[in-house]
Simulated scan of single mutants.
Amino acid sequence: MLLPSEDEWNRDVSSDEVDPRSEAIIASIGADKPLHEDFGLIWKGAPGGIPYYVVKGDQPRVPVTFRYADESDPGPYPIPPDAWIEGGPQAEGDRHVLVLDRDAMKLYELFHAFPVNGGKSWKASSGAIFDLKNPKPRPAGWTSADAAGLPILPGLARYDEICGAGVLRHALRFTVRKSRHGYVSPASHFASPHMEENLPPMGMRVRLKASFDTTPFQGPAKVILEGLKKHGLILADNGGDWYISGAPDDRWVHESLLPIRRVKGRDLEVVKMGELVTR
Rank of each mutant, 00 (worst) to 15 (best):
L107H: 03
G149M: 00
Y68E: 04
K123C: 09
L98T: 02
M105T: 11
P89E: 13
A145H: 09
G141F: 02
G149W: 00
A140F: 11
H96W: 03
P89N: 09
N134W: 07
I152D: 00
E109C: 12
G149P: 08
G88C: 14
V99L: 05
V116Q: 14
R138T: 02
I85Q: 03
Y68H: 15
D101M: 14
P81H: 13
G119Q: 06
P81A: 14
P60M: 11
R158N: 06
N134V: 06
F114L: 14
D131N: 04
H96I: 11
A128E: 06
R102Q: 12
H96N: 03
S144Q: 03
S72G: 07
L150R: 09
P154L: 05
L132R: 03
A145F: 10
F111A: 08
D146T: 12
E109Q: 00
L110P: 15
G75V: 06
K106D: 09
A83P: 13
H96T: 10
D101F: 06
A124T: 08
M105L: 09
D94S: 01
L110V: 08
A140P: 03
V62H: 15
I85L: 03
S121A: 09
R158Q: 04
G118P: 11
G119S: 14
H112V: 07
G88E: 07
P63K: 09
D131T: 10
G88P: 12
G88A: 12
D82M: 12
P78N: 09
M105W: 09
L107E: 08
L98P: 01
G127Y: 00
P63N: 14
D131C: 04
V97Y: 05
V99D: 13
P137R: 10
W142Y: 14
E86D: 04
S126T: 07
A104I: 10
G75Y: 07
P89F: 15
A91T: 05
S125T: 00
E109I: 09
I152S: 01
D73K: 11
Y159L: 13
L110Q: 04
S125Q: 05
G88K: 14
F66G: 14
E86I: 03
A147K: 00
D146L: 01
L100G: 12
R138F: 00
A113M: 02
V116M: 15
L153M: 10
T143G: 10
S144G: 03
E109F: 02
A145Q: 03
D73N: 09
A140M: 14
D131W: 04
